[in-house]
Amino acid sequence: MTETYKAINWNRIEDMIDKLTWEKLVEQFWTDTRIPLSNDLSDWNKLSLDEKDMIAKVFGGLTLLDTLQSQDGIESLKKHSRTQHEEAVYNNIEFMESMHAKSYSAIFSTLNTKSEIDDIFDWTHSNPMLQKKAQIINAVYQEGTELQKKVASVFLESFLFYSGFYAPLRYLGNSKLTNVAEIIKLILRDESVHGTYIGYKFQIGFNQLTESEQEEMKNWTYDLLFKLYENEMAYTSYLYDSIGWTESVGTFLRYNANKALQNLGFDPLFPDTAEDVDPIIMNGISTGTSNHDFFSQVGNGYLVGMVESMSDNDYVEWFS
């Protein structure tokens, strides 16, 4: 007998978090074409060659990671969807990761020449540290268990992106490249929801494991974080040593590694807290976005998810 194809019914929701997340993501939909990036050209032209090189590599690296997430990461998670609504949310996330990757090309086309853009992408294809972190994450996507894939995704969304996010947030704090930073803040807002949602789905599966299985999963998670952190600090040093920002970026990374762990329901690993992060950077995260109010509430402001180990009720409150 031919299997009956099942239509998705949004009037019968098994997990209300799926519906809340879908609505949140739709509410904050945006496109890069609405941001006036050309207004940043005067700031760009005043930067040193070292700064321009750093920014180009930062956005090249972010492009590669968003490409990985949109082409392989979310697709690997969809295979384990528990409901049709969960799969629909992943479809939304997958599209926005493609939007993020495209937005960096919009920045490149505004600030860089064609030959410079070609050089940036050549660099992303050959830099060993950037390629290593992509390979580590993708190996989990291709070969890991359902929960391991969710851990890798949360680490990518809530930790690895932040070595790149640091630079535009710092320039924003000094009133430079404000439109470029506007795109980063919109991306940050998306990634906050993505990391929270996937972390929540991880916790559902984790709580169904036996005690020994949970301990094994925790150990695997912290081992993966150590491996990624070691490589990420080498990558950070490569990007930022020449302009003296490496130590500050490292603090920001450790803070966000802790947030990633909390998204998964685990205890923080590093001693770094929000108080240790450069206040200019924290202000850039929490300050409202500019007045690009082109869809409903898009651009009206946000606070990157202050997500602890959250229960269902906490998650509902965060989205209200």
Rank of each mutant, 00 (worst) to 15 (best):
V193Q: 02
T83Q: 12
E75C: 07
L228G: 02
I13E: 03
V307N: 10
V140H: 04
E215V: 07
F108Q: 02
T21D: 02
E23L: 11
S248E: 15
D18W: 07
S42N: 13
T113F: 03
M99N: 10
I107G: 03
F252D: 12
E232C: 08
M129L: 15
A101I: 07
M217R: 01
K201I: 11
L228D: 01
N179M: 04
K46F: 12
H85F: 04
K6G: 00
L261P: 07
D312T: 06
N11M: 13
I13M: 07
M99R: 10
M1R: 08
S192Y: 02
L188H: 00
L172A: 08
T31C: 13
D223C: 01
I13P: 02
I187C: 07
L225S: 04
S163D: 10
K201D: 05
G73R: 08
V151L: 08
D43F: 10
M306V: 09
I281L: 14
L111T: 05
L169G: 06
T221I: 07
L239G: 04
N291G: 12
D40Y: 05
H194S: 08
K185I: 09
Y240P: 00
L303G: 05
L68F: 11
E87D: 13
D66P: 06
T110E: 06
A234V: 09
L20T: 03
W30A: 07
P268W: 02
D314F: 04
S103R: 04
L47N: 00
K52N: 03
Q131L: 13
N256T: 01
S42Y: 08
I137G: 03
K133G: 09
H194K: 13
L41R: 15
I13T: 11
K218P: 01
M129N: 13
T287L: 14
S109N: 14
R189V: 01
A88N: 05
T63I: 10
D32E: 11
E232K: 08
A134K: 10
T31F: 15
I136R: 06
S175H: 13
S76T: 09
T289K: 09
L77T: 00
L68V: 15
A106Y: 09
N127G: 13
L269A: 10
G305N: 10
I93M: 15
F266N: 02
D122S: 12
M1G: 13
I280H: 02
Y197C: 08
I285M: 14
Q71R: 12
D293S: 11
V277Y: 05
S163I: 12
W245V: 05
Y104T: 05
D223I: 00
D272Y: 10
N138T: 08
N291F: 13
E157V: 10
H292Q: 05
E230K: 15
T124F: 02
Y166N: 02
T21R: 01
I107K: 09
L264F: 10
E191M: 01
H80R: 09
K24A: 12
L253N: 09
F270R: 08
K57S: 04
A152V: 07
I285E: 05
M96F: 14
L160D: 09
I117E: 12
S242R: 11
L77F: 02
I35C: 03
N231A: 15
I285Y: 14
E216F: 05
G61I: 14
D293N: 14
